[in-house]
Structure formats: structure tokens, C-alpha cells
Design a protein around this nucleic acid. Structure first.
Lengths: 219, 219, 219, 219
DNA sequence: GATGAATGAGTCTTCATTCAT
DNA sequence: TATGAATGAAGACTCATTCAT
């Protein structure tokens, strides 16, 4: 007597994928609700396991939190590293590419949500915040600084304080990334500004500000 | 040297000043730790009263939270209203003044901390977030849009999409205000960028971007 | 300069009446909500004084409770005492009168509410319950027993176990008195049985049960 | 003499039996102390579990209360239903049996305690009181009314207002049931009237009151 | 006396964490 | 491993009681 009603799921869920599923579920909740308001039963439930199982992989809520941060960030860092020593385009193109990539990683991925989370919890988890600062913010910042400085050296850009400019010019994208994971959920989609437009406009403004002044006549 | 402070009364009757003291204490904690991690006994203790007293003035933690937000924001809104219809300076000056004032209100006051808080808790307190959006963000944004548009009409500024530009150009200050209440606490003061320098550099960049292109000949 | 706007109420509330007003207010709440669910601010408010004033007259909630019980009961006891050694009517008439009076005191007054309260709180306030038992229940019971026994001795009533009968025959009225202060509030008035009808029917049944059997023929 | 009880596990897994144990413990406390004075840790402790465990089975104190009421009452309702359509004895016998059963259910079981509880809390939990009224009081009352009316129709009983009589004649047993869970705990056992005697005496009185008057000749 | 602001012990309730199965 | 029942520390909230005014 053959019944097609199998006794389990068709594919056994692999144990190796458990941590990843848990991290994904936790990421969702942490970003949506914040650290304290995220309950571990819900995380476990969304990952399709029991609460006890979660503890087989992560010894505490705090560790889960740190793992979420680390696991979401680390691949981004690696990608970043690869793109640092790149093409020898003219610097304007490099800058365009930098902003586009930055948005890809932060705004379009979950990293913006992580950033919001870390900003919110910096007071409670300083090590996590420091980790983020050192592993994400500073490298990105360095990269932008390097591009600007190279452009100045080559005479492609007007001379500016590169460090200061970098901080100023990442902000619009960073804030948009944070907003996307926070206030934007409240507005109807049509009321939000499309990130592509923002990205493009920002890039052009920056390049305008960096355009070398015609020496001679005007001065 | 005799101190007159001898074992005084167990407590003083200070109905008038209590709410303000409690709100101040709550603001500190909420900004520092976030909503959930703030404990009401600690708020009460910092305000110098017992837990029960807090409940004489605020019926619940949530109400306290909302009151903190409202009370911190409302005076700012009022100031903003007053400054809307202002001098008839040239628009570049108006813009400088706008950024300076904006920083005064957000960065130098506690409003930046509130902003961080609201961004963090938008998912849990959508009404609060909406309130902030409508009463703070949008009015400020409108004001900047108005300045830019006036400048364009008068030919003082290059033609730009004012709404888009406004969003882009508030971001560096806004992020700095948020950062001041979050990540900056981790860095030693000397490692942080002085807000005044950032403010000035930003203003100049914006004005550069708005400088009307010499039409005709030069191009 | 005469203003007709007096500076206080026309009649100063006499301090001697304060305790009575407080007791009346407390009685209402205790009967309606029970001991624990009655809040002293509400009692004070209904009596038109502040919470602190309540404590000038009653040292604690428990004392207030006991005072309410005592003050509601004691006048009834006194009335009872006066009516014990009464007219020399025939016993049937005495019985009618007893039931009528009983209802007047318990059902029509607040004593029924007190009874409910004491029954409910007997476990928490045994002394109060004992007081009620000794000062109210037993005297009333004794009185009924006395009437029945007198009737039997005179041959007006059939011989019965007077003590047992007394307990049985007070029950319908007692339960009605309790019900009036409890479940009856839930029914629309027209659904409730009028106490007068119940009283009358009960009296007749009891007298029927006490009617001496015609000796002789039937036996 | 060796006891096998050696430092056993900290707790046992007993999902099936927990609710019943908790309900039993809660019933004890609610009846003994009333709703408000019952503390949930004590209920949990008496059931041999921790406070948290209680919340695995009942979401709040109020729900626990309602569950206690429901679970104590429902089986009684079911038994009642079964006994409704019963034997075709003569009505006097039916009445005897009704009273005996009634006492069995109310006085001998915990239902009397529940009744006390509901009477006490009717003001605070009207739905619970209404439930009790509709599911317990009215069905029992209907049953008694039906018996009396049948007896009258058959000429076995004197004509009476059955509804009124039913209310009067349940009262002595009902009050005894309530008393057993309240005032009786204060008296030494020998001072209390044995319920069997009360039951028997009551039954006889009722039957006496229902005995048809010899029409004609004798009067 | 009268007031009502202030107190703090006491309870309900939540949830991260443990552990018998 | 996986489960989920059980735990208990922690925190919001209430309210009888006190006491400065």
C-alpha cells in the first residue's frame, strides 16, 4: 500500500544551513524592531526551528546580535577590499563608480538596516559600534579619500580637504540607507524619493563641486 | 564653613518642576540607551524622585516617551515658525544662516538625540515617527526648498531640483547630529570632526554647487 | 465693597460628619467591588475629601473596613434588641412580623451588601466574620428560634426542630439579600423577582409547614 | 528504609497534567481568599511549578480565573444535562432525588466555593457572573420548576407558583453551600449543622408544603 | 485640621536561558 | 541534535500609607 504522503519534508533541511537561516531571521527582526524588542522565540520560529535549537548555535542573544552584525558586514568588507585597487579610470568615473557601489552595498542590501541598528545600540554595545566603525565606516571613508586625493594630485579635481569632503559626501547616501530601514516604511512608496535619482543627483553635485576652477581670467 | 544642609525633609513638594525634571532625565536615558533599555526607576532616580512619583506625572512608559519627544520638539517647531518669514537678504546669506540655525537646533541641542531615537524606534512607534516627520522634517525641508527656489528665481542660484537638493544637503548635518548622539561617544573627542568646520565646509560646497554657470562666452 | 460671591460653600461642612460621609462612601465601594478592589482615593473622592483626610479618621484600610461593618451593623443590632421582647400576638402573626422586619433590615438596607462582603472576605478577615456571626446572625437566629418554640409550646405550631427550621427558613431571604447586592445588578429589573412577593410566598409556605396536623381522624 | 527519592531532576516535563494541577491550586486560593488576594506565585507554588510556568498555560490572572470557573462548572453542567430526562418516579421521589443531587454537586463539590466567588466578584466580572447565571443557576432552576409543575399536573402536589417556589426552595441548600466555603471555616466542626440533616429536613418541609390539601369533607 | 505630593513594597507579566526528554 | 517545558530574574505599574506644606 503506497501512500504518496511522505513522512517528512522532501528535502531534509541541512544542518549546515541552520545558522544562516537563524541569522537571516534575526537580521529581519533586529532591523525591524531593534535589539531589545526582538524576541528569540520569534527569531527561531521564523527560521523554522525551536527556541532551544537557537541556543545550540548561539550562546546568547548578545552573541546572536554580534554574529548578525559580523556576518552581514564581513562579506561586504571583502568585496570592498577587492575593489580598492582598481581600474585606472579618470577620477570622475572612479567617483561615480564608488557612489554606485556604495549604494549597492549599503542601500540596496541589508547593511543599511545594520547601520541603523548599530547607531541605535551604540550606547549599549560599544564594541559592536567600534567594530562597525573600524571595519566598515573607516575603510569606505579611506577609499573615498584616496579617490579624491588622487583626483586632486592629477589636477582632475579642485583642491579640497579630502577627509572633510569624504565625510560630507557619504552622508546623503548613508542617511538614505538608514531612512530606507526606518522612516520610509511609514510613507507610501510613491512619496519616497527613488534612490537612483538621489544617487545620480548627488554624484553630479559632487563632481560639480570638484570641477577645477578655470584659472586665469575669472579670478 | 557651615553648610545649612542638615538632615532635611525626606522629600520636597515640587509639583511645578517635577515634569520638566523627569523629562530631562528621561531624555538622557532614552537617547543614551534607547526606549526598551531605559528603566523607569533609573529615570526617576536621576530626577531625584521615586518610581511612584514618575507615575503621578506620566501614566506609562510609552506616554513618557511620547512626552519627551513632544516636549523636545515643540519648542523647536515654534522657533522654526518664527524664523520662516525672515529677512530679505541675498539668498546665499539666507542659506548660510539656515544651515547655521539648523545645526544650532539639531546638533547643538538634544534634538539630534531625539532624531536618533525616533529613527531607531520608528518600527515600534510609527505615530511618533510620523509626528516627527510631519512636524520637524517636512517643515525644515520646506524652508530649505523655499530658499533655494527663491535664489533660482532671482538668478542668484543655478537652476536645480530644489526638493532633491534639499534632501541631499540636509543629510550631512543630520547625520552629524545623529552621530553626535551615537557613535561619537566612542571616539576620543580629538578624533571627531569639529561640527563648526563641517558646517562651514558644507555650506561652501553647497554654495559652490549653486553658483550660476557663466552663460555664453566661457563655456 | 461687598461681593455676593462667598468665599466658601454656604454651609461649612461639619467636621463631625466627615467620618459618616467616609463610611458611607466606603460602604458603597466595598459592597460594589469588594475589599481589595476598592481604592481609597476613590472613597475619599466620593466623600468629597482628600486621601490624606481619610487617614485622619481611620488609621488604615483594614480599620476603615471594620468600621464600615461595625457602623452598618450596630444600629441594626440595637433595633433588633428592642424588638425582641415584643407583643404578645399569636405566633403566626409574630412570624409574619419577624420576616417582614428581617427583610426591612437586611434586604432593603445595606446590610445585605455587608453580608455579601463578609461572606466573600471571611477567609481574609476571620474576626470580622466572627463578629458578624455573633452579633448579627446568631441573635436573629435566636429570635426566630424563640418564636417557633413559643408557637410549639402553645400548640399553635406543629412540633419541629426549631433550630434547624430557623436556619432553613432564613435562607431564602438571606440569599435574596445577598443576590440583590450581587447578581441582580446584571439582570434587567423586570427579570428580577419582586422581594415583596418572595417575602409573602415564603411566609405562607412556612406557616403552612408549621400548621398543626389535625390529630385524630387522619393519623 | 531506603527512599528512592534522591536529588532528582530540577523539574519534570508534565505538559498534560499541568493545567489541571494549576486549576486545582487556583481554585483553592480563589475560593479561600477571593480573586484579588490570590497571588499567582502562590498558586504556582502550590501546583509545584514556578510562576513563569503558569503563564505557559494561562495568559493572565483573569484568564486563569475564568478557566477555573469554566472548568469547575462545565462538568457539572454536563452531568446535569444527563440527569434531566430521567426516571418516571412519582414526583415526591423525584424531588427528593433532585435535592440530594443538587447538594452532591454544589455542597459536596467545589461548586459552592465557586458560587461564593462569583457572588463576590459579580461586580468586577459581570460576564463571569452572567455565564454562571445562565449555565448553572437557570438550568437547575428550570429543572426544579419542571418537577414541581409535573407534580401539580398529576395532582401529586398542591398548586403553587412553581417558579417562585423553586427560587425559595433552592435557597437553603445554596446558602449552605456558600456558607460551607466561607463562614463555616470559622466554627469548630461540631458547631456546624450537618448538611445531611439540613438536606433531609428541608426536603420534608418542602414536601409538606406541597402536600395536596384534602379537598371537601375535611375542611 | 486638611491637603495632595511623594513614597516604596508588592504584583503581574515578560522573556532570555536552561535542561529533561 | 532537536525540542519545548520549565525557570527566575527583571521590569512596569499600583496603591496603601506618610508627611511637608
Amino acid at each position: 500500500m503506497s501512500t504518496t504522503q511522505a513522512r517528512g519534508p522532501r528535502w531534509e533541511r541541512r544542518k549546515e544551513s541552520r545558522p544562516a537561516e537563524l541569522l537571516a531571521a534575526a537580521l529581519e527582526f533586529f532591523v525591524e524592531r531593534g535589539y531589545a524588542a526582538t524576541r528569540l522565540d520569534e527569531v527561531a520560529a521564523r527560521a523554522g526551528v525551536s527556541k532551544g535549537t537557537l541556543y545550540l548555535y548561539f550562546p546568547s542573544k548578545e552573541d546572536l546580535f554580534k554574529a548578525v552584525v559580523r556576518e552581514t558586514i564581513v562579506p561586504q568588507i571583502d568585496e570592498l577590499r577587492r575593489s580598492v585597487d582598481r581600474a585606472d579610470d579618470d577620477c570622475a568615473e572612479l567617483l561615480r563608480s564608488f557612489f554606485a557601489q556604495w549604494w549597492q552595498r549599503f542601500g540596496a542590501s541589508r547593511l543599511g538596516g545594520i547601520a541603523k541598528l548599530i547607531v541605535a545600540e551604540a550606547g549599549n554595545f560599544p564594541e559592536v559600534a567600534r567594530f562597525f566603525q573600524e571595519e566598515v565606516i573607516e575603510p569606505h571613508s579611506e577609499l573615498l579619500v584616496a579617490i579624491i586625493e588622487r583626483g586632486i594630485q592629477r589636477g582632475e579635481f579642485a583642491p579640497v580637504d579630502a577627509r572633510l569632503a569624504a565625510q560630507l559626501w557619504i552622508a546623503p547616501l548613508a542617511l538614505k540607507a538608514i531612512w530606507t530601514n526606518s522612516m520610509d516604511a511609514l510613507c507610501p512608496p510613491e512619496a519616497r524619493l527613488a534612490p537612483e535619482r538621489l544617487l545620480q543627483a548627488h554624484t553630479e553635485f559632487v563632481l560639480a563641486a570638484l570641477r577645477p576652477q578655470p584659472t586665469g581670467a575669472a579670478s
